[in-house]
Design a protein around this nucleic acid. Structure first.
Length: 820
RNA sequence: GCCUGGGUGGCGGAAUAGGUAGACGCAUUGGACUUAAAAUCCAAUGGGCUUUAUGCCCGUGCCGGUUCGAGUCCGGCCCCGGGCACCA
């Protein structure tokens, strides 16, 4: 064994060995339990970044730990390979997206291997491979058959100079990122998946996800946003048409003093043709991006449409406005505005001098002051005719009943969740398998003609842009029904479609008779532990849940939910901001590996911060991790010859010296602590406690055979506990310690509870809640005994002398508090 | 704007069910070893006070509350991060 910890050769040696022995490849076996641990697969952007390193280190530790606990562990990896950056690279570097993507993949694959992650590489998936997206197209057809696919128009960001659709990310301060032109909203036909059909189940099943963070569940709950309200019809005076509004506060309906509709609402068009003011306002409203954050932060503005509507209950005339804060995509695209009881309506009414009519009063009879803000709480109705005196619940019932009896409204459940628009006017994506025939209409591509392959063998144009709408050979096809000339859909699918089912494909990645082998999926799924960034809390996870349920409903699986447990990791921060190319604060993992080794980088990542929280990058911290592993190396080197011959199996604990006993207890406590921490994924404190054990072991002087045995046990324990986090150095040490087996297939360490409980425990004595003294007692000392000891304590006596003792609180095994 | 998470020494963080605030690491300072440096090892390290002690007081973003006892629970505020449906 070398004196020096030779990082590079050790890591290379073990990586080679693991790969040669295919040690991480797994199969379905009938005995024992399976465990499927999965990290969110990477987008092949070029090189691995620290965020990946963190994510995959956490996953690798869990996979290795579970394997030592006897599970049959599936730990796969793949590539989320379609997406926008590949097209940007094409434009910037004139390189074909496919070439760029595959080159990135091979580079990143090597980087992952260099970090020592134990993946089953035989299951590697690449989503831009036709053998992958073929099944996605097949699934699209099933959804189409079930009526879960439909086409409608919706808005996109349009760059009027570049004549292209822009992603929200490409709109900066309302302008196209390359052209700098003011972005417009443009309405185009697009394909949608009816996720709204699953809104109730997606919402109600959240309670079943006990292994998910509350924050993620709350965010999904609010995102789906089920609300109970009322739809009410306001008749338009000019046309007799009905304007339907949705409200969750029907109790305030008598206070409605105007209606507001979205700029895209059909009735606006009728007016804007003859009203220049409305026309220019609507045009103005179209000059924003489609992102909700932008819409919600712009100044609230509106103009009157010049038409009135009849209130469905009071029959009063109220004016109709068009306003930029009303969303066409939510409810009916029209709202009744009650300035007295809604803050946004209040501000709008103040701005445009519209009447404010209070109809709900505080239940405690306190005064209603609408001078500064709206009164938005629920209360008692007044000025509401027949509904006066009712509270919210009563008013909700009576008013909806009344509207229903007059055929002017009804109760309605609404969702904030919108259907999923999957059309992208982009090249680098999976083609949507639809054919348009002039005589037969639109239809899906028959299953036997799948995959509809994305043509890869095409040239970039002068700007580096590729568009499917220019590829004649792709577009022109024949109609599956009549055989006549027909055209293919040129939109591709949102890349979220690929990532919504990849975790199922890992169960049988080579299967070519279907989307997956049912047998394999029922063995491996659900994913026992899913790990990824908190930024995916809503979209990716919600879409994956939707796909899983839809696959179940077409009879492909029995799964209700894809991910049993979810761990959301924080970001990697440097100098106060997220580590990213755009911030210019990237630290290349390869450089760190070269300098300190993969084990050091892994240990730092795990030690610097708890997994759910953001992690501050610090090279000083990396050096600390490196020092720690060097100390581990050295303690083995220095003691190797001493402990080699020790084969003791029985220990007489009562005959041990204090020092020996103390280390023995520490070893057992550390095993317990690290085990508990691993179960909770608290790797930072697990490492801290191994460091404590190392500190105590370094000070230890083995003076007897028992002492040497305890020293050996401590060293073996440290190596075993560190293995899932630092696999290379521990395998090397393990072998040098005379073991023949690999730690990969070893069993997790056990601790002896009796030894842990054999030491005395510390009891804190407080007087009036302040710590004044401490005593040491055996763990089974009873309360009265501890109480008496506390009162006899010299320091305590000084604090309680001459004072009346009001109360004594004894918390077993913790403290005594004397209140005087 | 809406939804959501966070704020503890010089720094990263610990305190698992309301019970010793600051484990472990980094940095800094002093010492040992060395011709010297690096590496390593040992020690000190939240702030203040003076009577220098087995001492006292303050201290977990801010204000208030509950409790024998609050970093932890409750109410109100401030600041920072994540998401907002075409970045992935």
């Amino acid at each position: 064994m070398t004196k020096v910890y030779d990082v590079q050769s050790i890591e290379e040696k073990w990586q080679k060995k693991w790969e040669q022995e295919h040690i991480y490849n797994v199969e379905e076996i009938s005995s024992g339990e399976k465990y499927y641990v999965l990290e969110m697969f990477p987008y092949p952007s070029g090189r691995i970044h620290m965020g990946h390193v963190r994510n995959y280190t956490i996953g690798d530790v869990i996979a290795r730990y579970k394997r030592t606990r006897g599970y049959n562990v599936l730990h796969p990896i793949g590539w989320d390979a379609f997406g926008l950056p590949a097209e940007n690279a094409a434009i910037q570097n004139r390189v074909h997206p496919a070439k760029w993507t595959y080159e990135n993949i091979s580079q990143m694959r090597e980087q992952l291997k260099r970090l020592g992650f134990g993946y089953d590489w035989t299951r590697e998936i690449t989503t831009c491979d036709p053998e992958y997206y073929r099944w996605e197209q097949w699934f699209f057809n099933r959804l189409y058959e079930k009526g879960l696919v439909y086409k409608k128009t919706s808005f996109v960001n349009w760059d009027p100079v570049d004549q292209t659709v822009l992603a929200n990310e490409q709109v900066i301060d309302g302008k196209g990122w390359r052209s700098g032109a003011l972005v417009e909203r443009r309405e185009i036909p697009q394909w949608f998946l009816k996720i709204s059909d699953y809104a109730d189940e997606l919402l109600d099943d959240l309670v079943k996800l006990e292994g998910w963070p509350e924050a993620v569940k709350t965010m999904q709950y609010n995102w789906i946003g089920r609300s109970f309200g009322v739809e009410a019809d306001f008749e338009l005076k000019n046309s007799g048409e009905v304007l339907r509004v949705y409200t969750t506060r029907p109790d305030t309906i008598m206070g409605a003093t105007y209606l507001a509709v979205a700029p895209e609402h059909p009735i606006v068009k009728q007016v804007s043709d003859n009203d220049d003011r409305v026309k220019s306002f609507v045009k103005e409203c179209m000059k924003t991006s489609v992102s909700e954050a932008d819409l919600e932060t712009i100044e609230k503005r509106g103009v009157p449409l010049g038409i009135n509507a009849v209130h469905p209950i009071s029959r009063d005339d109220i004016p109709v406005w068009v306003a930029n804060f009303v969303l066409m995509s939510y409810g009916t695209g029209a709202v009744m505005s009650v300035p007295a009881h809604d803050q946004r309506d209040w501000e709008f009414a103040k701005k445009y001098d519209i009447q404010i009519k209070p109809v709900v009063y505080p239940a405690d009879n306190s005064e209603l002051d609408l001078g500064k803000e709206a009164f938005v709480e629920k209360g008692i109705l007044k000025n509401s005719g027949q509904f006066d005196g009712l509270n919210f619940d009563q008013a909700f019932e009576k008013i909806s009943e009344y509207l229903e009896s007059e055929s002017r409204g009804c109760k309605k459940i609404n969702y904030r969740l919108r259907d999923w628009g999957i059309s992208r006017q982009r090249y680098w994506g999976a083609p949507i398998p639809i054919i348009y025939c002039d005589s037969c209409g639109e239809m899906p591509v028959p299953d036997e003609e799948l995959p509809v392959e994305l043509p890869v063998d095409i040239e970039l144009d002068q700007k580096g842009i590729i568009s499917l709408s220019n590829v004649k050979e792709f577009i022109e096809t024949k109609c599956p029904k009549c055989g006549g000339l027909a055209k293919r859909e040129t939109d591709t699918m949102d890349t979220f479609v690929e990532s919504s089912w990849y975790f199922l494909r890992y169960a049988s990645p080579e299967f070519n008779e279907g989307i997956f082998d049912r047998k394999s999926v029922s063995y491996w799924l659900p994913v026992d532990q899913y790990i990824g960034g908190i930024e995916h809390a809503i979209l990716h996870l919600l879409y994956s849940r939707f796909f899983t349920k839809a696959l179940r409903d077409i009879g492909m699986t029995d799964l209700d939910e894809p991910f049993t447990n979810l761990l959301t990791q924080g970001m990697v921060i440097k100098d106060g901001v997220k580590m990213s190319k755009s911030a210019g604060n990237i630290v290349d993992p390869d450089e760190m590996i070269e300098k300190y080794g993969a084990d050091t980088v892994r240990i730092f990542m795990l030690f610097a911060s708890p997994v759910q929280r953001d992690l501050d990058w610090s090279e000083k911290g990396v050096e600390g991790a490196y020092r720690f592993l060097n100390r581990v190396w050295r303690i083995v080197v220095e003691n190797l010859s001493k402990i080699q011959g020790i084969n003791k199996t029985e220990l007489d604990v009562s005959a041990l010296s204090e020092e020996e006993k103390s280390l023995l207890i520490k070893v057992n406590r550390t095993i317990k602590k690290v085990t508990d921490d691993f179960e909770r994924f608290q790797f930072n404190t697990a490492i801290a406690s191994i460091m404590e054990l190392l500190n105590e072991t370094s000070k230890f002087n083995a003076a007897s055979e028992s002492g040497l045995y305890i020293l050996k046990k401590s060293i073996f324990s440290m190596v075993g506990l560190l293995f899932p986090m630092a696999p290379h150095i521990t395998e090397e040490l393990w072998q040098n310690l005379g073991n023949r087996n690999s730690l990969v297939d070893s069993r997790w360490l056990v601790f002896d509870q009796d030894i842990i409980e054999s030491s005395e425990i510390n009891i804190v004595i407080q007087v009036n809640g302040k710590v004044r003294s401490q005593i040491s007692v055996s763990p089974d000392a009873d309360q009265d005994f501890i109480k008496n000891l506390a009162f006899e304590d010299q320091k305590v006596k000084g604090y309680i002398a001459g004072k009346e003792i009001k109360r004594v609180i004894v918390v077993p095994k913790k403290l005594v508090n004397i209140v005087v």
